[in-house]
């Protein structure tokens, strides 16, 4: 059981205040989605937690220990997959096992375990058929499966995902959503999932956090209390209702709207 603890965290890029006073707790088994208007600091927060960006002030701890940089306890999945094109699918998945941090004092039974695990992950992700292919031979959805398997291979306590399905088409996304839910059911990890797609957030998460922009801050937290996930759930009134409410909330925080009257005035009052 691991706990990620974020408290009074803020981030400045020189004069620009990107995040202000963020509080967040995430525990093993939980799935939290971060949503918000574009530019509100979702990626920045995720990167700080991943150790890829420094924080300006505030506390950031895993099980009471401050985070000082990236670590394999917090694996990340990026929107652009960032696979290694020179490695095959199986080699990409096993990439972390070639690193010192895993290979030192490894007994042969642990090596067997890791090979078994990588095969299981390749299987779970539906990659068996393409295990010897290279990433550039795969579609976007398949590439992202490889990236997720590669991250899970590190057995992270926290899986941080930054709009992982943002570049995929709707059908592929739906398949990936169910895949992520399978992963959640089988892996001992906590999930922090950044997206701008509210439907995706509500479908996947136990808790949705809405960030408001300028400066980025927590606007509201929405516990999602829905029955077992199934694609048809997306059509139910409860689902649509909470999706609508969160969407309206994001709209309100972003202060964006389209003013028909003003546009008509501009085009000569047609």
């Amino acid at each position: 059981m691991s706990t990620l603890f974020v408290s009074h965290l803020s981030k400045r890029f020189d004069a620009f205040e990107a995040l202000r006073d963020i509080d967040l707790t995430l525990q093993t088994g939980e799935f939290v989605a971060l949503v918000g208007a574009s530019g509100c600091g979702k990626s920045t927060l995720l990167r700080i937690i991943g150790g890829l960006e420094t924080r300006s002030t505030g506390r950031l701890e895993v099980d009471g220990k401050p985070i000082a940089g990236p670590g394999h306890d917090r694996a990340m999945v990026f929107q652009d997959y960032s696979l290694y094109p020179w490695l095959t699918v199986a080699q990409n998945v096993r990439f972390c096992r070639g690193l010192k941090i895993y290979s030192k004092n490894q007994s042969s039974s642990e090596i067997d375990d890791s090979i078994r695990r990588s095969n299981l992950l390749i299987d779970l992700m539906g990659l068996t058929r393409v295990r010897d292919a290279r990433p550039n031979q795969l579609s976007g959805g398949m590439r992202q499966r490889v990236a997720i398997a590669r991250a899970l291979m590190a057995q992270p306590d926290f899986l941080l995902m930054d709009e992982p399905f943002g570049a995929l088409d709707t059908q592929t996304r739906e398949v990936m959503h169910d895949l992520v839910l399978h992963v959640k059911a089988t892996e001992r990890s906590a999930f922090l999932f950044v997206t701008h797609d509210v439907e995706e957030a509500v479908y996947l998460a136990d808790r949705v956090i809405v960030l408001a922009p300028n400066p980025g801050r927590v606007d509201s937290v929405w516990p999602i209390d829905l029955p077992a996930r199934h694609q048809s759930l997306k059509m139910t009134p409860e689902f649509l209702h909470i999706k609508r409410e969160i969407t309206d909330r994001i709209r309100a925080t972003s202060g964006m709207y389209s003013d028909l009257a003003a546009l008509q005035a501009l085009s000569g009052g047609a």
Partner: peptide, 28 residues
Amino acid sequence: PLSQIEAARTLGATNTEVVHKVLLRSAM
């Protein structure tokens, strides 16, 4: 690409490992 480097770092790669296993291989 920075993301190739960052992916390695979040998987636990050291600086030396990033240089040899990612930068050199990717730029080869």
